[in-house]
């Protein structure tokens, strides 16, 4: 049994999409589910799950799953 990538799981839950649809290349606004409203939910979920506080630069730069991983790493989170 393998455990899902926790970052992928947060994206899947926040965007309400199947886990299989999440990959590092997934980008903001390229699927209907990742719109501005979902982006706000995503920010809140990332903060809750990984216990970080994102600033506006992070929120703007977080345009893909890969970028989210980079930003979390900047906050000392290995996701």
């Amino acid at each position: 049994m393998t455990t899902a990538d926790p970052l992928y799981q947060v994206f899947a839950d926040s965007l309400a999409i199947p886990l299989e649809q999440v990959n590092d290349e997934l980008t903001y606004n390229t699927i209907p589910q990742w719109d501005s409203t979902a982006h706000m939910v995503l920010v809140a979920e990332l903060e809750n799950h990984f216990k970080v506080m994102l600033d506006t630069d992070d929120i703007i730069d977080m345009s893909s799953v890969a970028k989210a991983r980079e930003i979390l790493a900047k906050h000392g989170v290995t996701a």
């Binding site: 501005s36 706000m40 920010v43 994102l54 600033d55 506006t56 630069d57 992070d58 703007i60």
Partner: peptide
Amino acid sequence: RAMKALLSRSATR
């Protein structure tokens, strides 16, 4: 309201 709050947080860069 929510969008404004999100884009009004402090920026580090």
